[in-house]
Computed example of a mutant assay.
Amino acid sequence: MTKSIAVDLHYFPNLEFFAAILGADELVFFPELRYQRQSFFNRTQIRLANKVGTLSVPIQGRRPRISQEKIKVDYDQSWVNIHLRGIQSAYGKAPFYEYYFPYFEKVFEKNIESLWELNWEMLTICLKLLGVPVKMRVQSSSQDQSYTDDIRGQLMPSVPFSERNFYTPESYFQLFGLDFDPNLSILDLLFCEGPASKGILLKSVKKQ
């Protein structure tokens, strides 16, 4: 039986997201869903020298009560340079940075207007680099249910991952300091562990 999971689209998803979708044959996304503030749709966390920092993509308008597919990125703010500098500062000396960063840099340089499309392209690259052969499909909310699991709305910044049943931290090499920071952006794992990333994710899947 084909395993398909209905999921939310995140900006450089964290490790919990990937632990939750490993083993799926297909991911089903719903661009018509309303944009939710304080979600992972436009933010991710990376490990900096002295702290865990948040990268946020600014959006046009104020608290828009519209569908995710209509959210436009605000390029009047210099967020691209901020994100590029932040990623370089955090991971420029990581073992696999020089191999993987150009893939993402090319997408940043496109100045994609739609946040949905930006996230879609970045996630496609992440799945490819991880070696996770899962299909991605867009579905209208008006169509009949055609998925086996639904985790939409469950992965939220306001609730710790420890309270959900998807992810248990599996430590790996990180830059800066001795304490391990779990559940960061997938960028942290990819830049630090490269081809070993998928194996680490498999070990981090929470046993039911």
Score class of each variant (00 low, 15 high):
T2K: 02
I5D: 07
L9D: 04
P13T: 02
F17C: 03
A20T: 04
G23T: 05
D25N: 15
D25C: 10
E26F: 05
L27E: 03
F29S: 06
Q36T: 02
Q36W: 03
F40Y: 15
Q45H: 15
R47P: 05
L48D: 15
A49R: 13
N50H: 09
T54Y: 08
T54V: 11
I59L: 15
I59E: 14
R62S: 06
K70I: 03
K72L: 11
D74M: 03
Y75M: 12
D76S: 11
N81H: 14
H83P: 04
L84A: 09
G86E: 00
G92R: 07
K93H: 08
K93M: 04
K93W: 01
E98G: 00
F101S: 12
Y103V: 00
F104M: 03
I112Q: 12
I112T: 14
I112V: 12
W116F: 15
W116R: 06
L118M: 08
L118I: 06
N119C: 04
W120M: 06
T124R: 15
I125P: 13
L129G: 09
L130W: 07
V132A: 07
P133D: 10
P133C: 10
P133I: 00
K135F: 07
M136I: 06
M136N: 08
S140Y: 06
Q145I: 15
Y147V: 12
D149I: 11
D150Q: 03
D150F: 00
P160V: 06
P160H: 10
F161E: 01
E163D: 15
E163W: 03
R164H: 01
F166S: 05
E170P: 05
E170Y: 10
L175E: 08
L184K: 03
S185T: 05
I186S: 06
D188E: 12
G194T: 14
V205I: 13
K207P: 00
